[in-house]
Amino acid sequence: MGLSISAPSPADDVIALEDAFPEFHQGIERVLRDARGQGAVVPENAVTVFEAPSDGLVIKVAVQIEGELIAGIEYDGETTRAERAVLQQLSAFANGATVREFVEHGLTFVVERLRDPAMPRPVDGILSPRNAGPCFQRPRLLIKALRAAYLSQHGDFAGDNIFDRPYSERWLAMGNTEKQNRLETLIQAFREQVGLDEAAMAVFEIDQYDRVVVIFGPEVGVWDKPTHLLGLERWLRRQTGERIEVFVEIAKDSNRIRRL
């Protein structure tokens, strides 16, 4: 799985990332660096290849019909450097994805992946591929064209529209104790960063789905709790690369007559 762009962008080194908001520059440069040396990827024995053109770009997707899994992707056409990074990240997302998952969620993932989390989002409201900047627009139309091409041949996507990839194979292969130790070490590091001791934010439970449940001490202000919870969750996700969720203990109904 990888990326092939047959007509590379002109004068790569001198062109600035004019079509990308500054919040994406670092991510784009990182992806372009990592992408060097990758070659064509559509396997010759792929069962079916779908091709869709849009606005000077062409996408070719090889699909193993069994399970609709993407086996490879190629792009043709002249791109800016930023667009190339977007397409490169799309290919990375396609790894292990079905066609439906790719066309429906790929770009949303790419926006998040390329965005610098240390900077505020480039829009005040909800960030999406539609408003994330010019470099996302041609890829978006390309994906739209691919969806149309695929559906015109297939009628519909196969299987249920249910996708979830919370944990990697590597994480799932780890023993419970190892996972818990790793999480607890990271939670301790987070507490140190934000200046909380164990009594202020203690681990109540790490459940069978690796969801972390914490309890707060009385010294933590009510409106500091959401910030710490989201902060901890993001920290755990960044450090582990896994979609760990963080909660506090459930509150029971305190109405007098109504009780579960």
Partner: peptide, 21 residues
């Protein structure tokens, strides 16, 4: 507040999956 939009963005991002959460 930024917090309001932080949460709304979280729900609209790949950090969140309504089917599971």
């Amino acid at each position: 507040s930024d917090r309001y939009w932080e949460i709304m963005n979280y729900l609209a991002s790949p950090e969140f999956n309504a089917q599971k959460m």
